[in-house]
Computed example of a mutant assay.
Amino acid sequence: MSVLAVAKKDFLDVRRAKSVWVVSGLYMLLVAFLFYFGQNGPTDPNVIYQLSTLTTVGTLFVPIVALMMVYLTIAGERESGSIRYLLSLPNTRRDIVIGKYLSRGAVGTGVILVAFGVGAVMTVLWYPSFEATVFGGIAGLTVLLTLAYVSVAIGISAATGARSQAMTGAIGFYFVSNLLMISPNLSIVAALEYVLNGRLGMGISDHLFEFIRMLSPTIAFRKSLPLVVPNDVTVFPANADPSAPSYLTPEVAFTILVAWLVVPIAFGLWRFNRTDLD
């Protein structure tokens, strides 16, 4: 077998996972819901506004979709012992990690593209303008966000040896990188700033703390939005600040988001290679 053979087998396996279909179906229903009721709201429906709402909600929902469909892909097989069967074939551990990433990433990408396809059809039918450039750009960034969390889940799954550990790691990462990062004033970075600046008086720049917050894939995604959204659009959760230092630009945020597609897999593979499966 090879990377592609592992990916093909895993793709067939993931199609039978009910949890994947449930969370994917909920996301598609969410997209349809937002676009349907959006065209019944204002007298002049605006697809940009619906895309903004979808982006805000998606930062909470998309990581769940990605993590749910991936976190057990290797840890589950290690706990059941079926990983030994895969390794008894002419497969390397690298083949398994990358093959499973390709299959789960393809499923996640498919879910996002189908959901945005549903939104695109509804937009053409009910909205006065399609805004194809913005629509396509946001869909592309959402795919990258999905792949970033797929990468994280693969890395966690490869680095852990039990279902409970993989689940704990996935849930913990979701809380730390998402729920505890989205609100600037209520994030764990804000708590760090309070301790270092408020209590210890270290005088660290606010921009540096914002960069630390941007290391989250979710925040990097939001900070990348100005790359695909016109400057005069003010309804999106993140807008480019011309006065911000160079390390807070949308381009840097996009680079961080892309890095999340690679670094977790590399770490997971490194840990997997050092693990004794006997």
Rank of each mutant, 00 (worst) to 15 (best):
K8L: 04
K9G: 03
R15P: 03
A17R: 08
V23T: 11
M28T: 11
L30P: 04
G41L: 15
P42L: 15
D44S: 15
D44H: 15
N46P: 14
L51E: 03
I64N: 07
V70C: 12
Y71T: 12
L72S: 09
L72Y: 11
T73M: 11
E77V: 03
I83C: 01
L87H: 07
L89S: 05
R93W: 02
D95V: 02
S103L: 02
A115S: 12
G117P: 05
V118C: 05
V124M: 11
V124E: 06
V124S: 06
L125C: 09
P128W: 11
F130G: 06
G140I: 01
T142Q: 02
L145D: 05
V152F: 12
I156A: 13
R163E: 09
A166Q: 10
A170K: 05
I171T: 13
F175A: 15
S183C: 12
L186E: 15
L186C: 14
S187T: 14
V195D: 11
L196N: 08
G198F: 14
L200C: 08
L200G: 09
L208V: 15
F209V: 06
E210I: 00
F211K: 00
T218D: 01
T218W: 00
I219W: 00
K223D: 05
K223W: 04
L225F: 00
V229C: 00
P230D: 06
V233K: 07
V233A: 07
V233T: 10
T234Y: 13
F236L: 03
N239L: 12
A240N: 10
A244W: 12
L248Y: 00
V252C: 00
V252D: 00
I256R: 01
L257F: 02
V258Y: 01
V263L: 15
F267A: 13
L269I: 11
R271Q: 12
D278E: 10
